[in-house]
């Protein structure tokens, strides 16, 4: 019965992974990362339901908190990059400097 949820989770994760690999826009890459995180969350919650305990739900909360913190820092970096380079392409910052 939980198989559908897991399949959905895998699909969402794969979409997110492909998005991270093929998109250049930092914002989109970022959103794809969030998609992967949420795919994981869905899997955790599904397993929690399947096993009948709260461990998976607990981990899902942790992931959300970490994701929120990550969004704060990540968006700040992206905004700074955009301000200096007038572009949000991840390929433009390949030199890891300036």
């Amino acid at each position: 019965m939980t198989t559908h949820y897991l399949v959905l989770s895998a699909l969402l994760f794969a979409i997110g992974g492909v998005g991270v690999l093929v998109r250049r826009n930092a914002i989109v890459v970022f959103m794809c990362v969030e998609l992967m995180l949420n795919a994981c969350n869905l899997a955790f919650v599904t397993f929690a339901r399947q096993n009948g305990n709260l461990d998976g739900q607990l981990i899902a909360f942790f992931v959300m908190i970490v994701a929120a913190a990550e969004v704060v820092i990540g968006l700040a970096i992206i905004v700074t990059i955009f301000r200096t380079r007038r572009s949000a392409s991840v390929d433009d910052v390949s030199l890891l400097k300036y």
């Binding site: 992974g17 991270v20 690999l21 093929v22 250049r24 890459v29 991840v90 390929d91 910052v93 390949s94 030199l95 890891l96």
Partner: peptide, 13 residues
């Protein structure tokens, strides 16, 4: 070490 984040991501995957 190309510096392209996406290729690093690919190797991680």
């Amino acid at each position: 070490q190309t510096g392209f984040v996406r290729s690093y991501a690919l190797s991680i995957f």
